[in-house]
């Protein structure tokens, strides 16, 4: 097994996984989506809402705001000593108090103030509701940890996807150097230089096979490497992308360990 990081940003990571089978890649992907916990608002106490938005719609919008999560600081409610009733170890309170003056006003996710300075909306600019002049909004929201298995709002990832590594090969004896494939390629993989067709950045190839269709039969062939995967993991901002991958591997390991205990007991 070989792993190479291709690109790493604050909210996304692209890496290449070689020498693994689809089952493993898919288990990892599904674990990231459904098993890695993250914080999200789950209960809202509305004290005053004179805006045009119904309380439940507002609560739903609040639930979808990604919150920066410190996984080591909080327990999953079902694993907490309070047995899920809600205590400072498994719950975080956020408050919002806004009143529009003589002008209308937009309430943003950044207006939420948190009891724990670490647990804050990942982005401040998410519009929640627009208040007309003199409308008020006062509410208290309770965030807790949860997994994507329960509700998609708890997913720490926006996108998590993989594709097989593309193999683009050119048969020079069959190529007539017409250059049509260079024109048609949306990712600019093929280049025609001095009447020789060559490839560049083949990892970018989306396997659309547009080049194969315009070319002489057999001149360009697109194949994919079955045991190599290009992963793309984009975080919602709840957790750093590399932490998501690492946690997913740990969770997967834990589950395999449980199954192994079962197999050993047979």
């Amino acid at each position: 097994m070989e792993i190479t990081i291709i690109r790493k940003q604050d909210d996304a990571i692209h890496f290449l996984l070689e020498g693994a089978h689809v089952g493993f890649a898919n288990a990892l992907r599904r674990t990231m989506l459904t098993r890695v916990p993250s914080m999200s608002i789950d209960e809202v106490l509305i004290l005053e809402n004179t805006s045009v938005m119904y309380d439940e719609i507002l609560a739903h919008r609040l639930g979808l705001v990604p919150l920066v999560t410190k996984l080591d600081d909080y327990n999953l409610p079902e694993e907490c000593d309070c047995e899920g009733k809600g205590c400072s170890l498994c719950q975080c309170t956020l408050t919002l108090e806004k009143e529009a003056g003589d002008q209308d006003m937009m309430v943003y996710s950044g207006d939420l103030s948190s009891q724990d300075p670490e647990v804050m909306p990942a982005t401040e600019g998410i519009p929640l509701v627009k208040l007309a002049p003199h409308q008020t909004l006062i509410l208290e929201a309770y965030a807790r940890l949860g997994t994507g298995l329960e509700n998609a709002k708890f997913q720490p990832v926006a996108t998590v996807a993989y594709k097989n590594v593309p193999l683009v090969s050119v048969d020079k004896s069959k190529c007539n150097q017409c250059g049509d494939c260079v024109e048609v390629c949306p990712k600019n993989i093929l280049v025609l230089e001095d009447d020789v067709l060559s490839t560049q950045n083949t990892l970018e190839c989306s396997l659309c096979e547009a080049c194969v269709r315009v070319c002489e039969p057999g001149a360009v062939t697109i194949d994919s490497k079955e045991d190599s995967f290009l992963f793309k993991v984009e975080s919602t901002g709840a957790l750093p992308p590399e932490e998501i991958v690492e946690r997913a591997a740990e969770i997967l390991k834990e589950r395999i360990g449980e199954a192994l205990d079962f197999a050993n007991s047979l």
């Binding site: 070989e2 792993i3 493993f24 690492e246 591997a249 740990e250 390991k253 192994l260």
Partner: peptide, 18 residues
């Protein structure tokens, strides 16, 4: 299952290293 466990651990280590 032992193979799966070893592979996942290998992945975790190599990912951290990478």
């Amino acid at each position: 299952l032992e193979k799966m466990l070893a592979r996942t651990e290998e992945f975790r280590k190599k990912f951290n290293q990478a």
